[in-house]
Design a protein around this nucleic acid. Structure first.
Length: 491
RNA sequence: CGGGGCGUGGCGCAGUUGGCUAGCGUACUUGCAUGGGGUGCAAGGGGUCGGAAGUUCGAGUCUUCUCGCCCCGACCA
């Protein structure tokens, strides 16, 4: 492992790639486009899962599990849905291998061809709505509020660890409702859950908004999303919540008898976030020394490093460290004591900075003598010496301060990178030079949106919720516009 | 699928017009010193040079074929 990380201003993309590897989060696997999520990276995912799962349950949802494989015919039921996913589906055609006639290896047994091919799920709407048909007869069966934690496969051309991989982990919620209003309410509620999670745990400010037609989920009436801004000025969609209307109910013939005794199609939503959030977490906060993790999602919040010369010193320090560790753990703080004698303190400091551990305590002979401890915070890289007495409370407070500080920093960055622009020149300058969001008038047509994308590669990230109405002229065509929308380069 | 690049100890690389025992950094092992920001010195282990065929007295180096990976573009959470 090389010691130096590429600096962000040197090559942001390379910085990201190296950081993921060096912080030991994930690595490329033997399978093209698929990653191995290593224990430290997976621990972050587990923290994300834990918090979201709690939030889903608090809002009345339950977990279930649906198959990985989906019969091909299910996909053709909803026209736009097929259209959207057809180009990136992995297909299972056979169910058996046999040994090669010429000796070594195995080949596909052509006699074991499936009657109907199976699609490896890119998302589960179709299999789930096929299933819901059997669950729903009456309004009394509604709503159904189900979530599943699963893996999905989308055959992408180009992949990057966490940001875009062929297989990724996510959760997908699929709900069924008796009324349009209730489904709409659910869609927005889950968007709010995502926004709250992003801001309170990931410490990433988000903009909630609606997608334009061209960015909409295949098969949805409306797609809502939370958009975040990365340090290089590119936007990243952190989660989506879809109002599916009655599209899937009609495609899978899911009707229910309402209170008036009339048959009606069921209203639906779906919503998801993926391991991509880890990519957002990395790019949102980390610096040239490595990862910066928000305390509320850090698998290890505090590391204690002993500094010693003799075994006697180490033993004494270990004793003191374990006392401190216990007092921290009593406050619900996760602590690691690194008493390894195989690495020097300086090496450990660099290592834990690379891994983004929010708080580091160092204890040496001097501290033992003075009954103090050196406390260093990862976000600001500052250090101070504090008395051991009351250290647990101080650390608890510090963790909270760090969480607030990195959120505030990200918020300031985001806010200072939303640029109101009214001319095409200013628009291009934001997209091509400054980075960040261009908040500009758009005439509302897909044609204009496509032209802008063609000329600048920028896309409409969203139309923010509660967007103020404002008369203006489209930044490209000069046609009348009723509101501004957010454009940006995006991941 | 189009354009570019690369395959040599675990990782990162050098290896000139073919030439002698395949080398450097790092990591690893051992010893001694060191220990408050990636420690120093010394000794040591580790290689079918991506694979196959060919040219040659001789191939990491030349030729042909082949496999794989990375980067840029079209597609995307």
């Amino acid at each position: 492992m090389a010691k130096e990380l590429t600096r962000r201003d040197e090559n942001y993309s390379q910085w990201y790639n190296e950081l993921v590897l060096k912080a030991d989060l994930a690595e490329n696997s033997a399978v093209r486009g698929c990653m191995v999520i290593k224990p430290y990276g997976y621990a972050i995912w587990e923290k994300i899962q834990g918090e979201l799962d709690r939030m889903f349950k608090e809002t009345g949802h339950v977990n279930a599990y649906f198959p990985l494989f989906i019969p091909k015919s299910f996909f053709s039921r909803e026209a736009e849905h097929v259209e959207g996913f057809a180009k990136e589906c992995a297909v299972v055609t056979h169910y058996r291998l046999r040994t090669d006639d010429k000796g070594k290896g195995v080949v596909v047994d052509e006699t074991a061809k499936l009657e109907e091919e199976l699609i490896v799920r890119p998302t589960s709407e179709t299999i789930i709505w096929n299933t819901y048909k059997g669950w729903i007869q009456s309004y009394r069966d509604l709503p159904i509020l189900v979530n599943q934690w699963a893996n999905v496969v989308r055959w992408e051309m180009r992949t990057r660890l966490f940001l875009r991989t062929t297989e990724f982990l996510w959760q997908e919620g699929h709900t069924a409702h008796a009324t349009r209003d209730e489904a709409l309410e659910e869609t927005v509620k889950m968007l709010d859950v995502y926004a709250t999670f992003a801001e309170q745990f990931l410490a990433l400010p988000v903009i909630k908004g609606v997608k334009t037609e061209s960015e909409r989920f295949a098969g949805a009436i409306d797609t809502y999303a939370i958009e975040t801004l990365m340090q290089d000025g590119k936007a990243l969609q952190g989660g989506t919540s879809h109002f599916l209307g009655q599209n899937f109910a009609k495609a899978f013939d899911v009707k229910f008898l309402n209170r008036e005794g009339k048959l009606d199609y069921v209203w639906a939503t779906s919503w998801g976030v993926s391991t991509r959030l880890i990519g957002a977490l990395i790019m949102g906060h980390s610096d040239d020394n490595g990862l910066v993790l928000p305390p509320r999602l850090a698998p290890i919040q505090v590391v204690i490093v002993p500094i010693h010369k003799t075994d006697e010193q180490l033993a004494a320090i270990t004793e003191k460290a374990n006392e401190i560790k216990k007092s921290l753990e009593a406050l619900g703080i996760s602590v690691k004591y690194d008493g390894r004698d195989t690495h020097k303190p300086g090496w450990k400091f660099a290592e834990y900075e690379l891994k983004g551990i929010p708080v580091r305590l160092a204890i040496g002979p001097r501290d033992l003598e003075n009954n103090t401890v050196e406390i260093a915070r990862r976000d600001t890289l500052t250090k101070q010496v504090l008395p051991v007495e009351g250290i647990a409370q101080a650390v608890k407070q510090l963790l909270s301060d760090i969480q607030d500080n990195i959120y505030r920093k990200a918020l300031e960055f985001r806010d200072s990178n939303i640029h109101r622009v009214d001319t095409w020149e200013a628009f291009r300058e934001v997209i091509e030079v400054k980075g960040g969001f261009a908040y500009a008038h758009w005439d509302g047509t897909p044609e204009t949106e496509a032209r802008i994308k063609e000329e600048t590669k920028a896309t409409i990230r969203c139309i923010p919720l509660n967007n103020p109405a404002e008369e203006g002229k489209c930044v490209l065509t000069g046609n009348p516009s009723k509101q501004r929308v957010l454009f940006a380069m995006a991941y």
